[in-house]
Design a protein around this nucleic acid. Structure first.
Lengths: 337, 337
DNA sequence: CTGAAAGCGCTTACAG
DNA sequence: CTGAAAGCGCTTACAG
């Protein structure tokens, strides 16, 4: 079943069929009605390979997502879809493999689907190279600041990772914590992790707290089992800590399990906090203290920035949106405050 | 950059370029080396629209996934990818919208990508209609029994939902629970929910326990907030219950939060158990009692069954794999056993 | 082993 | 408003 069949059956030419499929106004009501009828009768759906092969532009915004599993991205994606639709674009989401190169994939997607703009989720700014400007369309990095990348067509929207992390350290300090362990990604490879670590180090130094990164910063991938293992290492290398700050809620969940399995109460013996503010954080026992990244705000600002770049040929911008410290129940107050 | 450019640059014809891209053996080593060199130089990637438009078959197995968010599917998908690769097929995963019709999407995917077989995840057998046989390739429904659908090209692999649910009820009974609430999907629309409910009802009746479905079965979608709301309704309509069995771990997490928010301890005041056995279940406090669906086993049996149908033109089979009751810590023993 | 050519199913100027 | 035709970038018989 092709548009040729629809054309034959309806008595019109393929060009006209194509026009009704694509909502081209230059079709008489009679022709439109008749052709639509035949399309419905056969449940015809145009072959998108052929469509995209030929089509010059797609009215679409591509969202390239690394990490199907990421619980922070799900609500952001949902909201972005809504915002795209509201602005007259169609959001097209592409889940790519953890090991894929996002710039290569973006190049291929641009060539094959001709989106008006591209949004990256789950891409570290370190992975985004200047070759991105070859894409020729505005791009946006979500939840990750790209100001330093200085790529002319790349905007970004994120929270201030460094300030948010410092805020959490200050909070723990105010609650009486002095020996704090950190669990985060590989700082040589992950920009958010290094920004968050920098924020923590700044706070430690302002507060006059010594911090031995070799002993008290544990590397982990952003998974529960890795959070678990990192916590076990911290227990060894940094035994007298009273609080642990994990750079994602998922790692914090792993860390909490590890503490319990070692006979420690949370927050009775050790306090734990996370980062992201995923829905699940609020369902845990105890509710997780965390930094909430505002999914709706990130999504709507991101789409709006990208569309301005698309429609008004605007310059790339790097916007920070406010984070929120969620107190939860997983941090013990050590000093009666 | 197209294969035409590669052809010109390398001095060979487009047909030869196409052959090296597709690993066709009928190419001289010299030509292959030269063409590969040019391809690398320009980082050329063939346009997959054009490829699929023309290609007769794709050596691929399509996996159509409803529910990006589903924590049970992530490990199943991962394992299926591995198994497909090991068997010489390439797994192609398509995430579709919750509201899409999976059979329509399957039809389109088959037309556009010509897979050798199709695996459905997150599709209820009720949604799968006899039109599926028009697809002309073997299909498989994952984690959901399709024996009753009687579609000639549709196999399935799942646990025995009814028996598993009955097993959980027996377990709760053995622990002294007599007033048990249930949280599940809409039984008119969800086959797994109705099978699990049937299993529970059978167990109740064998155990001589009365069960008022109107009061003690609460409908919910498979989300945490819906589990929460369903639990609140149960608290109203079925006030003296000592245990709740939610038909997914995610709903169980919501139910636990609701109980806590109403001042009840889990399992001290009310015991809770789930279904699926996702990784997270084991990280919760208390660890969740649940029915574990064996992800690896489901994945490897599913792929193996589908490949037999593809290669040996075998008949559809409906296989049950063993489930496992995980005791966790969320069920209180009421009778000292 | 290689090339020339047809054709996959669409979209889109171009004419009328 | 409609049709006829070119062409998107590939693959694949067919000849040689």
């Amino acid at each position: 079943m092709t548009i040729k069949d629809i054309a034959r059956e309806s008595g019109y030419a393929v060009g006209t069929v194509s026009r009704v499929i694509n909502n081209n106004p230059n079709v008489s009501p009679a022709a439109r009605a008749r052709i639509l009828e035949v399309i419905r009768k056969y449940k015809f759906r145009p072959n998108s390979n052929a469509k995209h092969l030929k089509q010059q532009a797609s009215q679409g915004i591509a969202m390239i997502v690394k990490g199907t599993h990421n619980m922070l991205f799900a609500p952001i994606l949902e909201k972005m879809q809504t915002e795209c639709t509201a602005a007259g674009y169609s959001g097209m989401v592409y889940y790519i493999d953890e090991n894929d190169n996002e710039v290569d994939r973006a190049r291929q997607i641009c060539r094959e689907h001709k989106p008006y703009g591209v949004i990256f989720l789950g891409s570290d700014s370190n992975n985004i190279t200047p070759e991105l400007s070859d894409l020729g369309v505005p791009c946006l990095l979500m939840t990750n600041r790209a100001a330093n990348a200085e790529i002319e067509n790349l905007s970004s929207v994120s929270v201030d990772d460094s300030a948010a992390a410092a805020r959490m350290i200050n909070y723990l300090y105010a609650k009486g914590h002095r020996r704090i362990g950190l669990i985060g990604g590989d700082i040589r490879r992950s920009h958010p992790s290094s920004a968050r670590l920098a924020g923590c180090l700044g706070a430690f130094s302002r507060l006059g707290l010594p911090f031995d990164a070799a002993a008290c910063y544990a590397d982990a991938r952003y998974t529960m089992p890795d959070g678990y293992k990192a916590m076990e290492r911290l227990l060894d290398s940094c035994p007298d800590l009273t609080a642990v700050f994990a750079f994602s809620d998922i790692m914090a969940i792993g860390a909490i399990r590890a503490l319990r399995d070692h006979g420690l109460q949370v927050p009775g013996d050790v306090s734990v906090c996370g980062f992201d503010g995923i829905e699940l954080a609020d369902y845990l026992n105890p509710r997780l203290a965390t930094i909430r990244q505002p999914a709706d705000r990130l999504a709507s600002r991101g789409v709006s920035i990208l569309i301005r770049c698309i429609e008004d040929d605007g310059d790339a911008v790097h916007e920070l949106v406010p984070y929120e410290l969620v107190e939860g129940e997983s941090v013990l107050c050590l000093n009666g405050q």
